[in-house]
Amino acid sequence: METPLGEPVPHQCYAHATEAFDFIGSIENLTSSEDIMTAIAKSFAIFGFENFIITGLPNPRERFEKVVILKKWPIGWFDIYAKEDYVRADPVIRLCRNTVQPFEWSEAPYNRDREPRAAEVMHRARDFRMPDGFCLPIHGISGYEACFSMSGVDLDLPPRAKPALHLMSMYAFERVRQILDPLPCRKVDLLTPREREALVWAAAGKSAADTGDILGITERTVTAHIVSACQKLEATNKTQAVARALQYKLIQV
């Protein structure tokens, strides 16, 4: 991995993101959603995930099954979830609409007594080996809402794994979206050298303060570079900006 200026990034700075970089490399040149689904299943199994879904969040007039982008769900569970319209009661989906931060399913609140349908969703999911999971909310600047939700029985989610999962999930979403609905190519000079450098260090797990120390600039300046990069890439957060910069080959890992 190198900075945009060609300087090597010390291995210890991005050890926590090794899984993400390996995964990104494995799907970078895939050209079908089926191949990406296979790659996701293989890489995410390392963390204990058995099933996953990438889906838009339907508005009140849309059916859930019409906004699903990619899925590896038990057939029986998908049929039940769609038939019962569980998307309207699912506490995981509800939290997705109200946060931009990744979360574990156990962090999605609901009241078992006052929300029997929410309790029913979570209880019935267990029958299909989906007792717990991790979810990435995705919000577009135009109001688009989606999520990447994954589940399993014996999950291995140490704190250092979550940033890697966040980047892996976001890159997978962007890659699938690019295949299904290609975005215009971005010019290599879209970002300034400092903006690219800030994104590279963000991909390596560095905070704005850490990056400022490394580059010899203030934390506020680093944040300004990140914000500017997000605007140019039409990204709603730093991780999405990193994912898009990687996809457009504006930065390298």
Rank of each mutant, 00 (worst) to 15 (best):
R196N: 10
I53H: 02
P184D: 05
F148K: 02
Y86Q: 09
Q231C: 13
C13F: 14
L183D: 09
F103M: 08
D90W: 12
S26P: 00
E65V: 15
D35Y: 10
P184Y: 00
S33F: 06
Y86H: 15
L136H: 02
E120V: 02
L233I: 09
L157A: 03
K238T: 09
A39K: 02
A118Y: 00
I54F: 08
R112G: 03
D35F: 08
E65W: 10
M150V: 08
R114I: 08
P137N: 11
K66D: 13
P137Q: 13
A224C: 08
D156F: 07
G25N: 10
F21H: 05
T99P: 06
D35I: 10
R88A: 08
T38V: 08
L157C: 01
D113N: 08
D127N: 05
A89I: 02
T99K: 14
I138V: 15
K238G: 00
L70S: 10
G140W: 12
A198H: 03
L199W: 01
E195D: 02
A45V: 03
V9N: 04
P163Y: 07
V67G: 05
Y248C: 14
Q178H: 10
V227C: 11
A172F: 00
A146L: 04
V87I: 15
Q240Y: 08
I179A: 00
E197T: 09
A203M: 03
D113K: 13
T223H: 11
K72V: 12
L250S: 15
V227R: 15
Q12R: 13
T223S: 04
K206N: 06
E7L: 15
S151T: 15
E28D: 08
N237S: 14
L215A: 00
A229E: 02
Y144C: 07
I141M: 13
T221E: 10
Q247E: 13
A20D: 01
I214P: 02
V67C: 14
E84F: 07
A89T: 03
L165V: 01
A235G: 07
D35L: 13
M168G: 00
